[in-house]
């Protein structure tokens, strides 16, 4: 079966096209997935900066009630899984989850270790390095980032504050967004790519198979039947075919003519005897 002319024509085309389309789709999906995750992280970074800037006034005036309200309200937003601000020692000062306030974070926990890996904590980190993805205690897929709250002149020059100018970071904002919309978008994109790939494969392989059948396999089959009948001594018309097949038909016609004349000669000789 795999050695027939049809198989030899169709199998390499099928394997080549299928393999190439699958590899292209997987690579494209991986690139698009990375791009979409990076977009979410960039969005979260901007959101974190917006929150830090929005809370700056309340921080400078040590208005903890307003700050707590801002954090709570942001936490009620759909898709926001958690928002928390913790101080330099890792103590949670404000959180959208009330039970968390006052707890101390482990420096080796995800989201902290990125800066606290070395003996001296890193003061700056790239957007992508600040991000982490995990399943929270409710089993939700979360993409979170930690954004440092820097000590600015307005902070250490204010009369009411105690921060020194040398202190670079005052605390950290940690915000986590649900990854469900991203996962849904990726699933839709994956399904669309599978449908597109199957359609491309069907069109390509179906097209090649149909054309081969129409212009090669059917004329060849007719020629095979013709030669078999000729061997049996049945006189018949040469079947039609494409240019190359017609040339082959012409050659077979000459051979058959020769064969028939030899047969007639033989018959005459036999009659003569």
């Amino acid at each position: 079966m795999f050695k027939s002319l049809t198989a030899r024509a169709i199998i390499p085309v099928t394997v080549s096209v299928t393999g190439f389309v699958i590899v292209c789709c997987i690579l494209l999906y991986a690139i698009m997935k990375t791009d979409m995750i990076n977009d979410v992280i960039r969005y979260e970074t901007n959101l974190a900066q917006t929150i830090v800037k929005s809370t700056r006034y309340a921080m400078r005036h040590d208005d903890r009630e307003s700050l707590g309200n801002i954090i709570n309200n942001i936490g009620t937003q759909e898709g926001v899984e958690h928002v928390r601000i913790f101080n330099k020692r890792g103590l949670i000062m404000f959180s959208s989850t009330p039970g968390e306030v006052g707890k101390l974070l482990d420096k080796n926990a995800a989201g902290c270790i990125e800066c606290h890996r070395g003996p001296v904590p890193a003061a700056t980190l790239g957007d992508m390095q600040q991000a982490r993805r995990f399943f929270d205690e409710k089993g939700k897929d979360v993409i979170a980032i930690t954004a440092p709250i820097y000590n600015e002149p307005a902070c250490y020059q204010a009369a009411c504050h105690v921060h020194k100018a040398e202190q670079k970071i005052l605390g950290t904002l940690d915000i986590g967004l649900s990854a469900a919309p991203l996962v849904n978008n990726l699933a839709v994109m994956r399904n669309q790519m599978v449908i597109f790939s199957v359609m491309v494969l069907l069109v390509t392989i179906g097209g090649v198979a149909a054309l081969l059948r129409r212009y090669v396999f059917i004329p060849l089959k007719l020629l095979v039947e013709f030669t078999e009948r000729t061997i049996q001594g049945i006189d018949q018309e040469i079947p039609p075919g494409g240019t190359e097949i017609e040339k082959l038909s012409g050659n077979i016609r000459s051979i058959v003519r020769e064969l028939n004349s030899i047969r007639r000669e033989n018959a005459k000789w036999k009659k003569g005897e």
Partner: peptide, 11 residues
């Protein structure tokens, strides 16, 4: 990217 390399190898 594992499946991309695997599909390339299988092909």
């Amino acid at each position: 990217n594992f499946w991309a390399v695997f599909a390339a190898g299988a092909t």
